[in-house]
């Protein structure tokens, strides 16, 4: 009763996952437009104090209320979203290059060099990404927080890519190709091309979601964005003192962060990266 024709093509996503991806990309696109046009859309420039009375609750005048310095929370969220999205994009690029791509290449390195890389990344992956990011920020400076967040998330991406590349290089079809004289470089190019086509977007979106949380947490603890630039994590962190009296100062930035991460996860097709 088996039928090869009945198998789904690799990379073919079930309808629900396809829908999630489309919804996720639509959300990310909307966030990118909002972030890009924040200078125009926002009522006040970034960090402008005294726009309204301090700690004014949400109202028609101030949709998301104002903070302790009388800044319009809605405008601040738009500006912070721009910083968060830009930093997350840089960090995600680092994850893809230093994690996924390096892992994919390392799996094919000769003389057990790849195994050494695997061991090293396994050790790094055992540490929480946030602590690693704090360590990297400590070794460099807060300006390099996106790089630090990217490097901290790289071990997990490396391990996933390494496992996938090993599986591919040990597959029957790779063995068959090698036996008929297809070189290692041609095989690598082929696997990389198909991996980018089938999984590139998911991997990038997954990395974006992971680093956005790390970056925001770094900023929350004061290791991330450097004022006057404020990202969503820094906004939430700054609202700690007023949270129980003025919930909107922290709740709306947190909702914006949740929305950003949620859209990124949807764009990844809610894929955890592990394959059956």
């Amino acid at each position: 009763m088996t039928s090869a024709a009945a198998q789904l093509a690799p990379g073919a996503a079930p309808p629900l996952r396809k829908f999630a991806r489309i919804a996720g990309f639509a959300g990310l696109g909307a966030i990118a437009v909002l972030a890009g046009a924040s200078g125009v859309i926002a009522r006040a420039p970034a960090g402008a104090a005294g726009i309204g009375p301090a700690l004014r609750p949400p109202s028609f005048d101030f949709l998301f209320g104002t903070d302790l310095l009388g800044r319009d929370v809605a405008s601040e969220i738009l500006h912070a979203l721009t910083v968060t999205a830009a930093d997350a994009a840089i960090a995600a690029t680092v994850v893809l290059a230093a994690g996924s791509l390096f892992g994919f290449l390392a799996a094919r390195l000769p003389w057990r060099i790849g195994d050494l890389g695997l061991w090293l990344m396994g050790v790094l992956n055992a540490a929480p990404a946030l602590l690693l990011a704090i360590l990297f920020v400590g070794l460099s400076s807060r300006e390099y927080a996106p790089l630090a967040a990217g490097l901290a998330a790289a071990p997990a991406a490396f391990l996933r890519a390494f496992a996938k590349a090993r599986e591919l290089s040990r597959s029957r079809h790779a063995e068959y190709a090698r036996a008929s004289g297809i070189g290692a470089m041609a095989l690598l190019k082929r696997d990389l091309a198909y991996e980018i086509r089938d999984d590139g977007i998911s991997t990038a979106a997954r990395a974006l979601a992971a680093v956005a949380i790390t970056l925001s947490t770094l900023s929350f603890f004061g290791f991330g964005a450097v004022p006057p630039a404020r990202d969503l994590g820094l906004m939430i962190g700054a609202a700690r003192a007023t949270y129980f009296d003025a919930w909107w100062t922290a709740a709306f930035p947190a909702l914006a962060l949740i929305l950003f991460v949620f859209c990124a996860r949807l764009a990844a097709g809610l894929d955890e990266g592990e394959r059956p």
Partner: peptide, 24 residues
């Protein structure tokens, strides 16, 4: 690498359905 180059003159035809990359 030279053996690999020499094997370009060999073709395989098997009854195994997994020898072709399913993604290609």
């Amino acid at each position: 690498s030279m053996v690999s180059r020499l094997r370009r003159r060999v073709a395989f035809i098997t009854g195994d359905d997994d020898v072709l990359d399913p993604r290609m």
